[in-house]
Nucleic acid binder design. Structure first.
Length: 271
DNA sequence: CCGGACGCCTGTCGGC
DNA sequence: TGCCGACAGGCGTCCG
């Protein structure tokens, strides 16, 4: 489900309900996520206060008094705030019960997400340590992408979706940013000029900023922490629009697999 | 070392 | 109507 804008929307929605509140208990109803939910979660977390909620790429980092809970929403995960008397919904595998009576519930039908615990620097966790710069940071520049891409044969779309290159760009926003930059998604990453990477870096940032401002993209069931859907779907130019006329030139939007992922582009506008 | 393919899961949708 | 295959917003791991 979630790419960076959806994770950021979730973070902003749930943070006000969590910061400064103490976790009373953690209910693990099914520990069989992408990685087993560690027993330390239900042992270490109760009694601790949530101090901050940060995002790194598509990961959410819950800072507690001592240690961090690391959450990834995978393909179908979502987080919501529930009141104390609301019944647990299907697939809500992990529930954090807070001292204010509210609960934070992780729903994840496909169980590709994870809930982990670390008492060390979360940025140094093995799942986070190798990931690239935040796309909205200055470090993610056209020059950076240009330099890193030299000699690389894979498609530029696969390149910008590689978390070691940039953190948080997924299948929707890769297609959208490449359309915005006028770059064909299948072009070899190593054969794109510095100038065009500068345009691509700008396009990635603008696309993600716009999507965050719209509350993310709801394709099926994504809800922000406030329960509202994201409105960026209406702003998608190519993703999910196979055969529809390109809004810029009118040619039909193409769909094909690139790196085993569905990709959408305009063959006339993108080269 | 790099790049591509494979699994992990379940729900939904379109076609026959 | 019902069944079955294809496909889905991610990503670590394995293999060549």
């Amino acid at each position: 489900m979630p790419e960076l804008p959806e994770v950021e929307t979730t973070r902003r929605g749930i943070a006000p309900h969590l910061i400064g509140h103490r976790v009373r208990t953690v209910q693990v109803h099914d520990r069989r996520l992408r990685w087993p939910v560690p027993a330390a979660i239900s042992k270490q977390v109760p009694g601790q206060t949530i101090r901050a909620l940060r995002r790194r790429g598509k990961y959410l980092l819950f800072e507690l008094d001592h240690g961090h809970v690391i959450v990834h929403l995978g393909m179908s995960g979502s987080l919501r705030i529930a009141t104390g008397d609301e019944p647990r919904r299907p697939y809500e595998h992990v529930v954090f019960v807070l001292d204010n009576g509210e609960r934070l519930a992780l729903r994840d039908p496909r169980r590709f997400g994870c809930v982990l615990w670390t008492d060390a620097d979360p940025e140094q966790h093995r799942l986070l340590v190798g990931i690239g710069p935040e796309p909205l940071s200055r470090a993610c520049s056209g020059d950076y992408l240009y330099r890193l891409s030299r000699g690389r044969k894979p498609a530029v779309k696969s390149f910008i979706m590689d978390a070691r290159v940039i953190a948080g760009v997924g299948n929707i926003y890769a297609s959208e940013a490449l359309f915005r930059a006028g770059i064909h998604p299948a072009r070899a990453a190593g054969r794109i000029s510095r100038q065009r990477y500068q345009g691509l870096a700008r396009a990635i940032k603008a696309t993600l900023r716009d999507a965050i401002a719209a509350g993310g993209t709801t394709l099926r069931d994504f809800r922000g922490g406030d329960g509202r859907p994201g409105y960026f779907r209406a702003a998608l130019k190519v993703y999910g629009r196979a055969e529809c006329p390109c809004g810029r030139c009118g040619a039909p939007i193409r769909q094909r697999q690139i790196g085993q992922r569905s990709s959408f582009y305009c063959a006339r506008c993108q080269h």
